[in-house]
Computed example of a mutant assay.
Amino acid sequence: MSGSSDWERWEGSSAARVVPPARVRKLAKVPFVELADGRLQGVVSSGSDIERVYVSSVAAGDHAFACSTNNNRPCGGARGSFCNHILALVGEAVLQYGGQRVARYLRVELADAEPTAAQLTSAMRAARPSAVPGKELAAAVFNRFLRHLAYLELAPSTEPLPELHWFPPTRTAVA
């Protein structure tokens, strides 16, 4: 931001900057994807039941993965290898954040400057990731997804939202 007027205008708003997606993505299959808590994680729609979603994740570094339904039932396809939900999650993460950013976050070493989802999953599979129980993880990710959905139902407003008003009330120096 240039100048103090930009800073003051931003500081006084209740909106945060959103990084635009690397490419446009469709939200029907993977409505929620994030790089958070040392994992690529998100919510993936079921291909067979419109009322069922899966919470899938891949950990950075060791690429341990978890996939279960929103009711904490284990995914039948995530037994010893990435299931289709995790593959879809990685694909949408590449669309949302770009292949290089996802690879860097998950600590996947690839020679390609902008890796594809297939290259990322292939490299992670080569590391022989293990499935891990994810009941606590699934609940937290699904809860965050539901909270994001709730924000979509709010009428547009410039008024601050109390639960998002955690910034300090005074201006601090920026180094």
Rank of each mutant, 00 (worst) to 15 (best):
A59S: 10
P162D: 08
G80R: 05
S57T: 10
R23G: 00
V141I: 07
E136H: 08
G47S: 12
H165K: 06
S45A: 14
S48P: 01
E92F: 00
F142L: 12
A173N: 12
L120Y: 09
P20G: 10
S46A: 09
F167T: 13
E136L: 12
D49H: 13
A78R: 01
V33E: 04
A117N: 03
A113C: 01
V55T: 11
V90C: 03
F142K: 01
W7R: 14
D49T: 04
F145N: 06
Q96L: 15
N71G: 09
P20I: 03
A123I: 03
L154C: 08
E8T: 07
C83T: 12
A138N: 12
T69F: 06
S4M: 08
V33T: 14
A28V: 07
A123D: 03
T172H: 03
S81Y: 08
H148M: 08
E8D: 14
S56G: 10
W166I: 12
S13F: 04
D37V: 06
S130R: 02
A111H: 10
A88L: 09
V141F: 06
H148F: 10
H148S: 14
E163W: 10
S81C: 03
R73S: 13
G61W: 07
R171T: 15
A16P: 01
G38Y: 09
A88Y: 08
L146R: 13
G80T: 08
V132I: 06
Q119K: 03
L35M: 08
E109N: 14
W7N: 03
V44S: 11
A127Y: 02
S13T: 05
H165T: 05
R17C: 04
N70I: 12
R107V: 02
A123M: 07
D112F: 02
A59I: 10
S122E: 09
Q100P: 00
S14E: 05
G61E: 10
L154V: 05
P74L: 04
S48E: 06
H63Q: 09
S130T: 04
A78I: 01
A64R: 15
A117E: 01
Y54L: 12
L110V: 11
L120K: 07
A66G: 15
V53Y: 01
L110N: 10
A103Y: 08
A113N: 03
D62P: 04
L137Q: 09
M1P: 12
E51N: 14
R73T: 12
Y151S: 10
W166T: 13
A36M: 13
F82E: 05
R171C: 13
T69L: 07
G12V: 00
L120T: 02
V90I: 13
F82S: 01
C67M: 09
E109K: 12
N84K: 12
P168I: 00
P115V: 05
S5H: 15
E159V: 01
P160S: 11
R128T: 08
G77N: 04
N72Y: 04
G12T: 14
R128V: 11
V174M: 09
A140F: 07
A59R: 12
E114D: 14
V53A: 05
P169C: 02
V94N: 00
